[in-house]
Amino acid sequence: MWDMDLSVFKNALSAVLVALCGVVGCTNGLPPEPPRTLQIQQTWELKPGDTLAGHRIIGGLGDISIALSGDKTLYAPLDGRLQPHSPDCVIFSSEELPIYLFRLCGVQNPHWGQIRSREKLGTANILNLAVLNRLSDGKWAFVEPSKQIIEQMLQPPNTAFMPTP
């Protein structure tokens, strides 16, 4: 009898929590992702987010610009975390690969927080992608991204290289 009462209580509580999340827009009750800040070694004069002659800069030196076709979806290249960075850009990082960061500018509908490998990161019409490498002083430097890692972000899971059998 106790078991039945408790399960009813638990279901009712879950329903209330789900309803609350629907109203206030929470994700599993977790707090929103904090922005990721970083210091880039190369200090270019123009960066994404800057304005010049009244026009917005959406990419910079060190970015690869990609016009996405099809369903315009981006995928996580490995297990990691997506965090806000600036009004136009987000940062994808991974505890399995902490010496690199992926700066993605132009991402829409970002899936903030922990993301499993090959899950959706968001969508983009024009993606400006930069790969940053951690230096010994803690700053980050632009490096040339490999075709393989970019492909893993662009190809849906069934056609892309699968890292685990």
């Binding site: 490995l78 690969l97 010496i99 490096v143 991204p145 490999s146 890692i149």
Partner: peptide, 15 residues
């Protein structure tokens, strides 16, 4: 070993 990755051109990261 985790899968090796090519993240930047010219380097393979073994894990």
């Amino acid at each position: 070993r985790l899968p090796s990755l090519s993240v930047r051109v010219g380097a393979i990261t073994d894990r």
